[in-house]
Design a protein around this nucleic acid. Structure first.
Length: 295
DNA sequence: AAGGGAACCAACCGCGTACGA
DNA sequence: ATCGTACGCGGTTGGTTCCCT
């Protein structure tokens, strides 16, 4: 089916919003609610497309938006959640009241990614793509980007595999997701925070994507648990969890670069993670979880 | 002082999906 | 079941500001 254009291109203003436009948008939404974003600009007397209005409202004008620099606690939360969720900015933003996905995404790309990479590079150089592979050739750069993505994906998969094996070992680490589960962020998930935002989180991870080689992608629909199921999720036993994880992983073939979108599966498993699963180590900083992988 | 590159961030674009007809 | 529409999300762009030489 054809994709409908988001808005008429002619007669629609673009670029930075003026204070007058902001005022008009705020006034209208305050009085009438946003209703249909598509028709809102017309009703509010704005020469903007609905999409633009929605973005402006959500990212800037909405009440409760927290401006200014991120606190250390927020930074830590972002880093830890990103380790679990990947680039699911909306899901991460759901854990940071007053922060928008766009803001978090920008902050990650401009501040945190670099810092985390630096930190990883110092402690765990093997997790970074080969720094010697640098080229101005577009094709080579493209390959480097692919390789970088593949390394990251394999690292995630490897960590998840380690989780599987942990049942038969008494080694203290590295139960990546389990440790995260028992970290500060995991505490928040288990406590009320996860209940408040469970809907948005579940919405954002309602599909598990299966990356197939040759860039073919197919979607595997999974059912979205209802709020009342949250308690049940907590009660699932360790063996069923492990079996589920094994099922997911056995369908992938890391050698051929077929792998689960472990960001999604990780969150899904986290939300189903039973308390009974024990783990013997604990650390607040997820970077520490990688200790021992490179040594 | 100037200009060039880097950093930052608001806004845009395209895709996937939910939902109603 | 199919199609059309609207919405939400993540990636990307481009304008502005900052910083260094």
């Amino acid at each position: 089916m054809g994709k409908a254009p988001c808005c008429e291109k002619h007669g629609v203003k673009r670029g930075a919003w003026t204070p007058e436009e902001d005022e008009a948008l705020v006034d209208y939404i305050t009085k009438h609610g946003h209703g249909s974003w598509r028709t809102l600009p017309k009703h509010a007397g704005l020469l903007r497309c609905g999409k633009s209005c929605r973005l402006r409202w959500i990212n800037y004008l909405r009440p409760g938006i927290k401006r200014g620099s991120f606190t250390n606690e927020e930074e830590t939360t972002i880093i830890q959640l990103h380790a679990m969720l990947g680039n699911r900015w909306a899901a991460i933003a759901a854990q940071l009241p007053g922060r928008t996905d766009n803001e978090i995404k920008n902050y990650w790309n401009t501040h945190l990614k670099k810092r985390v990479r630096q930190s990883l590079g110092e402690k765990h150089p093997c997790l970074l793509p080969d720094r010697n592979v640098q080229s101005n050739s577009p094709s080579t750069r493209h390959m480097v980007q692919w390789e970088s993505a593949r390394v990251e994906a394999e690292t995630r998969l490897s960590l998840e595999s380690t989780l599987l094996n942990s049942g038969s070992t008494t080694k203290t680490y590295p139960d990546y997701f389990l440790q995260l589960w028992h970290s500060d962020v995991g505490d928040k998930f288990r406590a009320g925070v996860v209940c408040q935002s469970i809907v948005s989180l579940e919405e954002s991870c309602s599909d598990v994507s299966l990356q197939v080689k040759n860039n073919r992608t197919q979607s595997l629909k999974v059912s979205t648990p209802k709020l009342e199921d949250v308690n049940l999720i907590q009660e699932q036993n360790a063996s069923s969890y492990k079996l589920k994880l094994e099922d997911d992983i056995s369908g992938s073939d890391s050698g051929n670069y077929e792998f689960l979108d472990t960001s999604d599966s990780a969150l899904k498993h986290l939300l189903r993670m039973p308390d009974e699963i024990g783990f013997l180590g604990h650390t607040d900083n997820f970077l520490n979880l990688l200790d021992g992988r490179c040594d």
